[in-house]
Amino acid sequence: MTPAISVSGLVKTFGATRALDGLDLEVTPGEVHGFLGPNGAGKSTTIRVLLGLLRADAGHVRLLGGDPWRDAVALHRRLAYVPGDVTLWPGTTGGEAIDLLGRLQGGLDPVRRADLLDRFDLDPRKRSRTYSKGNRQKVALVAALASDAELFVLDEPTSGLDPLMEAVFQEEVRTLHDQGRTVLLSSHVLAEAEALCDRVSIIRHGRTVQSGSLAELRHLTRTTISVETARPVHGLAGLPGVHDLRVAEGRARMDVDGDALDDVVRHLAGAGVRALTSTPPTLEELFLRHYGDEVAADRRQPARVGAVRS
């Protein structure tokens, strides 16, 4: 099967800045693919290359089996795009902008449009100038989601939405997924990627640092284990792959490397386990390992999730 998106060794420079430095990305048809990275990692630049708005300096880029620069117009009939920063024409209404973008893309379904306006609680008669950031984003979302595209390129589409609207968005993406459409979802909201994505690619400084399903990536990280035992456990600190160990009155809490879990659990079993909770690693933690030079410092701080979210 031809990949929906296939990028390898993509390089894009702006003057002295090397925005993309050998980026790889593979999206298979029918999957929701998370495109993750901190601000400035090169997500939007990659997307602009995929849309033929920027020309690649080097590397191989295929989109829906075509060349996104040369075949831009033909390919764009088959995709819908939501920019990260939506600006609309000051004199037009939201409804007009939705229709315009939809018609330019190749037509939109009026029933679906009405349904989406309702679900996103968007008044299409207001002037674009008076829309908030979230409402401008809804305009672009409605225009994209009401189309019949096979590929949806969504660049941080929820950054201005409130939690209620984010839930609506997630349902809509799941519907797309059920219909077998392909979604490239760029985000730095990790909960969103965790909730929606089959696979993710994590990029940093214009390079792909991790790519795979969440399950595949998780083995690279640590599981947090809290345990209550009948007898005090000894020797945990000496086991390979155990980090941040804290022991107090028959309780222990630690982070364990994925490949050391088996040994650690066997060791705990010897002390008589009364209660055990294990928390799978979140994407936050994945992220932290790849984006923090501050990881080392953070390891000593339990409130690491909050640190990433802020």
Partner: peptide, 8 residues
């Protein structure tokens, strides 16, 4: 940008 990302 959004216009040129359509079939325009």
């Amino acid at each position: 940008e959004p216009v040129l990302a359509t079939a325009t």
